[in-house]
Simulated assay, not measured.
Amino acid sequence: MTSRHPLDRPIWTALSGRQAPFALGAGPARRIATDVGVFIAAEDDGPDSLAAMAELVRTHGESWRLEVGAAAVPGTAVVAEAVCVQMIADALTPAPPPAFAFEPLTEADAPAMLALATLTKPGPFAARTHQLGDFVGVKRNGELIAMAGERLRPDGYTEVSGVCTHPEHRGQGYAAGLMRHVAGKILDRGETPFLHAYATNTGAIGLYETLGFRVRTQVTMTALRPA
């Protein structure tokens, strides 16, 4: 039997490993805490695992799966589904340092991070999402206008996520520069950076490829609610 790649079910790998403190549930299914995110996963597609996942959805509301393949979950209904690409970078393409200043973001920046993510919608972002990993940002006159950081952290891998720029400040190379910094720090730790993008978002995928990311596989995003 071929062993499963840890990124085939990155949510399960993260919430049953390094990020277990953020998990709800202790059996064959886990959901990330509701003030951290919306993600859910099961260890496998066995009936016990799917039943445990359905119970978590009933208890905590809408939850998103993100994995290779996705068996139907009895007791839930699909709110939305989309094909995504999962990309990894074994190395980054050479580039000069960013031509702008940026800084580490701290707990004091949490309200501004949530406000920027709510405005720009880079993906699910809740009140404590920033606690999943390190974030960096660009500020102008004290206002946070761009950021990028880390989300899921399966053993040996860290996801680059939360990449967004205020609409009034786009076109300055902030996203690429911040992503390059975040991914570079992950590589410096001896880990592999990865990310997800909707398969239809060819512009973003093209940008990620210029940084050194390549498509590893397709994954399916499935948003579930109680039936």
Rank of each mutant, 00 (worst) to 15 (best):
G133V: 03
I186W: 00
T222V: 13
P96G: 02
L207M: 07
A70W: 06
G17A: 06
R58I: 09
A14T: 06
T217Y: 12
D48K: 11
E55V: 07
T210E: 15
A197H: 03
P94G: 05
P124Q: 05
T2R: 13
P97H: 14
A175S: 09
A127G: 08
A183W: 01
F100I: 11
H166P: 13
D188G: 13
L114H: 05
L144W: 00
E159Y: 01
P104T: 06
D134I: 13
P74R: 00
F125M: 15
T202C: 10
P47R: 08
T129A: 06
T192M: 03
A126D: 05
R153D: 06
P97S: 10
Y198A: 06
T210M: 12
V215I: 12
D109F: 00
A199C: 06
I11V: 04
L116I: 03
M113D: 04
K185F: 15
F135S: 12
G190Y: 01
K185I: 13
V83W: 15
N201A: 07
L116A: 04
A52R: 01
P98W: 07
I145A: 01
V215E: 10
L116H: 03
F100Y: 08
T165C: 11
A82G: 15
A95I: 03
R189N: 15
R214H: 08
G61P: 01
E209I: 01
